[in-house]
Amino acid sequence: MTPERTLSSIRVGLGVLFLVRTTIGARLVGLASPNWLYGWPSGGWHPSVFGIALPSTVMCALCVLRTLGAVAFVIGYRVRLGGLVAGLCGLAVLTQDPLAFFNTMYLLHVGVVMIALSIPDALSPPRFLVMSVYAWAGIAKLNSDWLSGRVLFELAADGTIRRGGSLVGTTTAVVAAITVVVIELSLPLLLLLRRSRPIGLVAAVAFHVALEAFVRPDLFGWAMLSLLVAFVGEQKPRMLSR
């Protein structure tokens, strides 16, 4: 796959996911979407980041601009401008209801910003994003709650993990918890090194397929799979090159 085609594939894949998740299109994939555009002001009270509550008219404008930017980003018209408008307007919308914050939405927004700033010869922004997600997710799980299997046990008990009956045994939960941490902390290194990259890609795809089967974390896995395309094919070995 040529670098141009790689970047286009990520752009279209991630852009479509972004559009689906931030519009009423989310219902097409069985996800909740109370309004035509995500974040459209409903008039109810909500806390906001830094206590800055934007007026409704500004919120409406941000939602529309975000959608127009995302459409331009997907169809390939003024990709950089469209992606930055979509990502930054969307992030501004997300600050207005932090209790509604979830990682899939954040990943889609920062992912679109990263792709907007990428060029075919330097796919380092999405690559760094993918590696940092795995690394931080692994670091966050280096705590006694997770490593003891308690978190997995509770997630299985409340139904977050489907088919989680096998986690009832403490040993199984501990082994599964440690395995997840090892995978998440190994993936950045496997993906970083050219020689181990194919193994890293296969492991990452298998990891997300397993997550989809057991947890189905919104569109998170699909967004990560889109970004993982940045590791397919060869790019020039310049980290942040022009």
């Binding site: 954040y106 990263m114 997710a137 308690r150 978190v151 509770e154 947890v215």
Partner: peptide, 28 residues
């Protein structure tokens, strides 16, 4: 890249909220 991959997750991790540090499912 520095902001999204390092600065924001690190500051979020340090302040305890972990909202921007990809801490999904790490605590119950």
């Amino acid at each position: 890249v520095a902001l999204i991959c390092v600065v924001l997750p690190l500051s979020s991790y340090i302040d305890g909220s972990s909202a921007l540090s990809w801490s999904m499912y790490s605590h119950a």
